[in-house]
Amino acid sequence: MFYPNSPQTSPQLTQIPYGQQYAMMQRQIQQPYHPFATTEPQARLYPYHYQGPIQQEQGGFITQQSTAASPQYVQMRVTPVDQSIMSGYPNQTANGSSSSSFNYNIHPQQQQQQQQQQQQLRHHAMPVGSVPLQDDRYRKQLIVNYLAPDVTSTDLHELFSRFGELDGARIIYDKQTNMSKGYGFVYFCHAEDAKEAVERMSGYEFHGKWLKVGYSTNPLNIVPSNSSPYVHAGSRGAAG
């Protein structure tokens, strides 16, 4: 039997160049792979992502010199942007860049009308829970959420009447099932009393439920100042 490094198959040491006398086997001759043993700084910083320098080929596509990437890492192929796409944008300079302001050559009167329309939209648009300043009635009506099913309009009136005089209180019921929808409205005579009720009743436990109280901004629920107070009856038909 002959071994790869046996004296019968191995040459004389004098015939082997210096430095390879003890590297006779194939696994010894093959050098191990060192990912950080390279002179390129990109490979030292990113050993798993770097795959060699990027070269520009004919046709405008950018390719990489090395083989496919590892399945664990996804390499994105980048193509140059066609400058003709950006030619339609206004205020574009000769080098292809555009300024931040756009001039669509709008007539001054049209621009003024658009600004007025935007101001009107901001004036009428009102986020949930906010209180408008032009109508004091919005500051007097509250919406009470997360009410228990057994709470009546009379219970709601008695709960909030300790903060001040009320114009009314009612629970909203479903017309088909005649069941409470879980929320109601309270109408105060003074805005200061309503503000105190919002601050003190939010998070209050009532009939096993934690109440959420806020201003009601729905104009359909506003009680006119010259109208008669609501009837605080315990029956659902009268309260709904």
Results as ranks from 00 to 15, higher is better:
156 L>T: 06
203 G>I: 00
106 I>C: 11
173 Y>K: 06
89 Y>H: 07
78 V>I: 13
29 I>E: 15
236 R>D: 02
104 Y>W: 11
200 R>F: 10
2 F>G: 01
72 Q>I: 15
153 S>C: 11
176 Q>D: 05
53 P>I: 15
18 Y>L: 04
238 A>L: 14
89 Y>C: 03
174 D>F: 02
106 I>G: 10
92 Q>S: 11
207 H>C: 06
55 Q>T: 10
188 F>K: 00
25 M>A: 03
229 P>E: 04
11 P>R: 05
71 P>Q: 14
79 T>P: 09
213 V>N: 00
76 M>S: 06
85 I>W: 15
192 E>T: 11
166 L>T: 04
6 S>V: 12
99 S>L: 14
71 P>F: 14
24 M>W: 12
134 Q>H: 11
135 D>I: 02
176 Q>C: 11
26 Q>P: 12
117 Q>F: 12
91 N>F: 14
203 G>Q: 03
24 M>Y: 04
81 V>H: 08
118 Q>A: 09
122 R>Q: 10
161 S>H: 11
207 H>K: 08
82 D>M: 15
234 G>R: 10
23 A>R: 07
122 R>L: 13
144 V>S: 01
93 T>V: 09
140 K>W: 00
28 Q>G: 10
179 M>T: 07
108 P>N: 11
53 P>S: 12
169 A>P: 03
159 L>I: 04
35 P>M: 13
159 L>G: 04
2 F>S: 02
136 D>S: 04
45 L>M: 06
167 D>A: 05
161 S>R: 12
38 T>K: 04
139 R>W: 03
197 A>V: 04
190 H>D: 10
217 T>P: 00
97 S>P: 11
101 S>K: 06
29 I>R: 06
174 D>E: 08
39 T>N: 03
191 A>K: 06
206 F>R: 00
81 V>D: 10
22 Y>W: 15
200 R>C: 13
88 G>W: 15
211 L>C: 00
206 F>N: 01
35 P>L: 14
117 Q>S: 08
209 K>C: 00
108 P>S: 06
31 Q>H: 13
85 I>M: 10
75 Q>L: 15
98 S>M: 15
5 N>V: 12
86 M>A: 08
136 D>Y: 11
89 Y>W: 12
130 S>F: 11
19 G>I: 06
151 V>T: 05
31 Q>G: 13
201 M>W: 01
56 Q>R: 10
134 Q>W: 10
56 Q>I: 12
235 S>L: 04
62 I>L: 13
91 N>G: 12
22 Y>M: 12
124 H>L: 11
59 G>S: 08
57 E>P: 10
13 L>W: 14
165 E>T: 12
191 A>L: 05
234 G>T: 03
168 G>T: 06
124 H>F: 12
219 P>D: 00
89 Y>A: 05
137 R>D: 01
63 T>C: 12
24 M>I: 14
19 G>Y: 11
192 E>V: 07
208 G>L: 01
74 V>G: 04
150 D>M: 14
229 P>Y: 14
27 R>W: 15
80 P>A: 07
222 I>C: 06
125 A>E: 07
64 Q>I: 15
55 Q>N: 10
198 V>I: 07
86 M>L: 09
212 K>I: 00
29 I>C: 15
233 A>F: 10
238 A>G: 13
88 G>M: 14
105 N>E: 05
38 T>H: 03
149 P>W: 04
63 T>A: 08
140 K>M: 02
169 A>L: 01
224 P>E: 04
96 G>N: 04
183 Y>V: 00
180 S>Y: 05
155 D>V: 03
158 E>D: 12
6 S>C: 11
76 M>P: 06
49 H>P: 11
74 V>E: 04
140 K>F: 02
33 Y>R: 04
126 M>K: 05
80 P>Y: 14
4 P>R: 06
162 R>D: 11
14 T>I: 14
115 Q>F: 14
149 P>M: 04
10 S>F: 13
176 Q>A: 07
41 P>Q: 10
211 L>H: 01
118 Q>G: 09
197 A>R: 01
35 P>R: 05
82 D>H: 09
25 M>Q: 04
40 E>S: 07
147 L>F: 02
129 G>D: 10
177 T>F: 08
236 R>K: 07
174 D>S: 03
151 V>P: 07
48 Y>P: 05
172 I>D: 00
13 L>P: 08
2 F>T: 04
212 K>N: 07
50 Y>V: 09
84 S>H: 07
51 Q>C: 12
225 S>P: 05
73 Y>W: 11
58 Q>Y: 15
19 G>V: 13
116 Q>H: 05
22 Y>F: 10
47 P>F: 15
55 Q>G: 09
183 Y>R: 00
117 Q>V: 12
226 N>H: 06
112 Q>F: 13
65 Q>C: 12
65 Q>L: 14
193 D>M: 06
33 Y>K: 01
52 G>I: 13
139 R>F: 12
236 R>E: 01
41 P>D: 06
67 T>E: 10
178 N>W: 09
233 A>R: 11
95 N>A: 09
131 V>R: 06
203 G>W: 01
90 P>W: 15
69 A>G: 04
142 L>R: 01
211 L>F: 01
48 Y>M: 08
157 H>P: 11
97 S>D: 13
106 I>V: 07
42 Q>A: 09
184 G>W: 01
184 G>M: 00
139 R>V: 09
32 P>C: 09
57 E>Y: 15
159 L>T: 04
191 A>W: 09
115 Q>A: 08
130 S>R: 11
105 N>S: 04
125 A>D: 11
107 H>G: 10
28 Q>L: 08
131 V>P: 05
237 G>A: 04
62 I>Q: 04
177 T>H: 03
110 Q>R: 12
66 S>Y: 15
237 G>W: 02
236 R>Q: 04
50 Y>T: 12
157 H>A: 12
94 A>Y: 13
122 R>I: 14
224 P>R: 12
232 H>G: 06
91 N>V: 12
9 T>N: 11
137 R>L: 02
12 Q>V: 08
122 R>D: 02
82 D>Y: 15
134 Q>S: 09
75 Q>E: 09
203 G>D: 01
128 V>W: 12
44 R>V: 15
58 Q>A: 07
61 F>N: 02
3 Y>G: 04
109 Q>C: 13
97 S>H: 14
6 S>D: 06
207 H>M: 05
7 P>S: 10
181 K>R: 13
40 E>V: 11
27 R>I: 15
50 Y>H: 05
49 H>R: 05
226 N>K: 02
192 E>R: 03
189 C>T: 07
129 G>V: 06
221 N>H: 13
232 H>P: 08
198 V>E: 03
195 K>H: 10
240 G>P: 05
232 H>D: 06
63 T>E: 13
38 T>P: 12
220 L>E: 00
54 I>Y: 13
30 Q>T: 15
112 Q>S: 09
129 G>P: 06
155 D>E: 14
15 Q>K: 08
78 V>N: 08
196 E>G: 08
187 Y>E: 00
209 K>E: 00
119 Q>V: 14
106 I>R: 05
211 L>W: 00
202 S>A: 12
78 V>G: 05
88 G>A: 12
157 H>R: 08
83 Q>S: 09
239 A>Q: 04
183 Y>E: 00
189 C>M: 11
170 R>H: 04
80 P>M: 02
154 T>V: 06
22 Y>Q: 06
105 N>R: 09
138 Y>T: 05
166 L>I: 03
99 S>I: 13
179 M>R: 13
14 T>F: 15
161 S>M: 03
137 R>I: 04
222 I>L: 04
165 E>S: 12
80 P>D: 13
32 P>H: 04
178 N>T: 11
198 V>L: 06
135 D>K: 01
61 F>T: 03
58 Q>E: 04
42 Q>D: 09
28 Q>P: 12
20 Q>Y: 15
181 K>H: 01
58 Q>N: 11
195 K>M: 09
179 M>D: 06
40 E>I: 13
184 G>F: 00
58 Q>I: 15
83 Q>E: 06
139 R>H: 08
147 L>K: 03
